[in-house]
Design a protein around this nucleic acid. Sequence first.
DNA 1: AAGTGGTCTAGACCACTCA
DNA 2: GAGTGGTCTAGACCACTTG
Lengths: 232, 232
Amino acid sequence: MRPLYLQVRDALAERIAKGEWKPGAAIANEGDLAREFGVSSGTMRKALDLLEGQHLVTRRQGRGTFVNDQSSEDLVLRFTNIRAPNGDRLEGEVRSPKITEGAANGAECARLCLAPGDKVYRIGRIRQKDNKPFMFEGACLPAALFPGLKEKSTLTHSIVSLAQKYGILLGKAEERISVGTTSPDVAAALSMAPGIPVTVLDRVVRAIDGRPVEWRVAWCDLADNHYVALMA
Amino acid sequence: MRPLYLQVRDALAERIAKGEWKPGAAIANEGDLAREFGVSSGTMRKALDLLEGQHLVTRRQGRGTFVNDQSSEDLVLRFTNIRAPNGDRLEGEVRSPKITEGAANGAECARLCLAPGDKVYRIGRIRQKDNKPFMFEGACLPAALFPGLKEKSTLTHSIVSLAQKYGILLGKAEERISVGTTSPDVAAALSMAPGIPVTVLDRVVRAIDGRPVEWRVAWCDLADNHYVALMA
DNA sequence: AAGTGGTCTAGACCACTCA
DNA sequence: GAGTGGTCTAGACCACTTG
């Protein structure tokens, strides 16, 4: 039997994913929730602790428990590890975004755990700071998770807030960092010469249940900026 | 008042740090420990949960709670984010290690939170795999934390097991990744030409209480290998 | 003063491991 | 079957925030 506190956590998470509880709203207190679900307050507490660890709620003593807004700056920048010289996370502004739809190729199937023939959306964009491009990125998302993404004009450029719009709760991500050389496209996008070494960031973002949600490869020039990784 | 479970956790951690409980040994069961400390089993449990999250103990249902051996492969490689092409963490073999002692310079004082004049040990080493050097690193450690390190022949090349020997419990680390060019020394160590772009890993490892324990700067060639960062 | 989350208790019972 | 950690309960009391 699956532990009760996990079942309760998942039930609560689903309410948040479905928008039944809106971002920023307060949810009922522990006691009431416990009664509603027919569990003890200790069990409900453990479930809420887990939700907080997953960045889904914030609890403040004396005030209450609140649903997190995934489009808040802190959460949006959660997977943005590039930092400006001053140490701030560097999102930059997006230039010339492009989106296309198509069948996933071999690499995409492998990285996103898709079956051959599954549809994906591919997004290309350039990020710049002070009119100076520092990153060219290509993202690939399973079309099944983001129905109608191409047609929507709501295109946000953060996988975090995008996932919130589509009711997907994000979990962990892993990023592979290596060194490559500028292909002609990348060189053009970053105003560099072709064949120059650049840093390649290869990232997979997963949903709370482990399913891959986005595969992104970014080419960037780390001359001015740097990358920060934390280890627990 | 500091929560009881934190006080208990610290008391248990100290026993481990001091070697009162040896790595690999089983410790008393929750009930006995709770009685010994005069707390409820729930509180003792919470303290043990925290210790497990800090990689200090491992608990196995039906068997008991065991003190972790920090020199076990999993824990030693905790801060080793360079990976071989096959995905394994790449520690490599150490070649031509050198250790010196001296007063910390400005940068070292800043990164290690030392006062001017405090002594440090500086260790230089080359790491290679299959006789091919891939990383040149310079580490700097506060001498106060590692008394007599220079004289000891026990020089291990992992900060994790070294800390265990000196009764220091490690907590988090952060690594800054940027791109630099090979200085003459680095070029020689890595058998590369000078002035070539290399990846620079700048890492600070902290103790459980947040004090910096090691500042390491590593220059490496990511042509064959790559770096992996995880995001929660 | 009322309401919230945070701590703490003192159990019971379950799931697992091992002799 | 004995012993362990894992789950779950049903409270009490504390610390904090707000009206």
